[in-house]
């Protein structure tokens, strides 16, 4: 009985230690990155890339924030832009589909790599399926607008 408790305690503690050693430095890096001048440069580069997916320049900040920091942060910055009327309905739906499939790409991926998943497959597989569905829904929404 004591052996089982010992085993469970040390097993879970070592897993916890592995995850802590990966997640805490990442969190510190992300918090620093958010407040550094590199953030604006990064957003400008993102704006150039997402042009090919059919997004406008205003969607760059919500998308970059969501993909790096998580869905809550991305949605928060997006609400500001929606209130100002900078993003139209089609783009709101497309950004939401993009963010809901791939958000917090650094932190969440690191947790699963820590327990033994293949990094290349879970990272690029997720991005590939996201881009596929965003392109698909972009075409579908265009089709609906044509019949209005």
């Amino acid at each position: 009985m004591i052996e089982i408790i010992q085993d469970a305690l040390f097993g879970s503690l070592s897993t916890l230690l592995t995850i802590t050693m990966i997640v805490v430095p990442l969190m510190i890096f992300i918090e620093t990155f958010k407040r550094s001048p590199f953030w604006d440069v990064f957003c400008n580069n993102v704006a150039k890339i997402i042009k090919y997916l059919g997004f406008s320049k205003n969607s760059a900040i919500p998308l970059a924030a969501g993909v790096i920091f998580g869905l809550i942060y991305g949605a928060g910055t997006m609400m500001d832009e929606v209130k100002k009327g900078l993003i139209n309905t089609k783009e709101i739906i497309l950004i939401n589909i993009f963010l809901v499939l791939s958000h917090a790409m650094i932190e969440d991926t690191a947790i699963f790599v820590a327990i033994g998943a293949n990094f290349v497959i879970i990272f690029f597989g997720r991005i590939a399926i996201t881009i596929l569905f965003v392109l698909l829904f972009g075409k579908i929404l265009d089709l609906f607008r044509r019949f209005d």
Partner: peptide, 8 residues
């Protein structure tokens, strides 16, 4: 719940 706040 977050998505419904954005309006989807």
């Amino acid at each position: 719940a977050i998505c419904s706040r954005i309006g989807v």
